[in-house]
């Protein structure tokens, strides 16, 4: 009996607890207002891969639409800078010549995406395409967002040199540092390296900067230009013409270089150069253009003994980090004639 009495007492306590519980239940219903607790700020890529894929898709769509209609005006929404100049010229040449053979193919498949961590504007992203169907080399594309209300636009491209071992970049989920044109962490600052390379193209092996760069014989772009100069020079050197061929480049004015950090602390620098080709025969001779592009660009002009060709060249250079004993190496180039005039 005593056992059950104590049990009863316990039960009374339980009952009291339950009643108390029920009472509290009726009163305590309000909860505290939450306050915002955002994630801490951390650096990351300006775009996610998904967003970047949409950007590339939009760019490809605009480019494809313009290609389809041979209408450069449709490029403006997604193409800018040297890329716009080159593509506009290519489309005009294609319209004039009736052939799209010289319109650069930009594959829409990508083997690597390089995204910026830049938090301000402009922002630059890069993409490396796969090889084209006819096994043309992969392209390195640069896209630029000028301001927060602007879209990313295709700014430039180069074809990667054959057999290139592309420097490694930070993963696109982490993002890569975009360097200022005067960044000092490199062997040569981005804007200087471009100016030096332009000088190298103009003056050849005699350039004062040649030592910083890989030997001319290994550089496919310099090899190409040398070949053109030799063959054109040979043509112009005929007896009846006794002409000369010169080619010179300067960095395109008011066009910033695009530099992105590589994994080893160096950078890939992309820039546009203005190339000028002058072919001049002796007085009284008449030069006729060779090649589709020049012919199309010279259409309707009165031939003379002097032809000036304008090129929009785009180059990408690998610049080693400061203090490195590596040489600056060409990553890729694009050499497209965008203008031609007699005289």
């Amino acid at each position: 009996m005593t056992a059950s009495t104590s049990r009863t007492r316990r039960s009374r306590w339980t009952a009291a607890t339950a009643l108390l519980t029920a009472g509290l239940l009726l009163t305590g219903c309000a909860a505290d207002l939450p306050t915002p607790s955002p994630a801490p700020e951390e650096s990351g890529p300006a775009l996610t891969l998904d967003q970047n894929a949409r950007v590339l898709e939009s760019v490809n769509k605009a480019v494809a639409a313009a290609d389809e209609a041979l209408d450069p005006d449709q490029l403006a929404s997604r193409v800018t800078g040297p890329a716009l100049a080159v593509r506009t010229s290519q489309l005009e040449v294609a319209k004039e010549s009736g052939s799209t053979d010289w319109v650069t193919v930009l594959p829409a498949e990508y083997q690597q995406i390089i995204l910026p961590t830049t938090q301000t504007w402009p922002r630059t992203s890069f993409a490396i395409t796969n090889s084209t169907e006819d096994l043309a080399p992969p392209r390195l594309l640069a896209l630029v967002q000028e301001g927060p209300r602007d879209p990313f636009k295709l700014w430039g491209w180069v074809q990667l040199r054959p057999g290139l071992r592309m420097p490694a970049f930070a993963d696109a989920k982490i993002g890569s540092e975009i360097l200022a044109p005067d960044d000092s962490s490199l062997l040569i600052s981005p804007q200087d390296v471009v100016a030096q390379y332009a000088d190298l193209l103009t003056t050849g092996d005699g350039s004062a900067f040649a030592d910083s760069f890989e030997p001319a014989a290994e550089d496919p772009f310099r090899t190409l230009l040398k070949g053109i100069a030799e063959s054109q020079g040979a043509l112009l050197a005929q007896e009846r013409v006794e002409g000369t061929y010169t080619f010179s480049t300067v960095p395109r004015p008011d066009t910033p270089v695009q530099a992105v950090r590589t994994a080893d602390g160096g950078a890939v620098v992309m820039a546009a150069l203005d190339g000028t080709e002058v072919m001049e025969g002796k007085e009284g001779s008449v030069l006729s253009p060779t090649g589709t592009t020049a012919s199309a660009l010279l259409q309707g002009q009165t031939p003379t003994n002097r032809v000036t060709g304008g090129f929009t060249d785009m180059i990408a250079l690998f610049v080693p980090p400061a203090g490195s004993d590596q040489k600056v190496m060409l990553v890729g180039y694009s050499h497209v004639q965008t203008s031609a005039t007699f005289g």
């Binding site: 009952a15 339950a18 009643l19 519980t21 029920a22 239940l25 009726l26």
Partner: peptide
């Protein structure tokens, strides 16, 4: 009481 407490709950 138990039923009441459960009911309140």
């Amino acid at each position: 009481l138990g039923l009441a407490a459960a009911g309140l709950g």
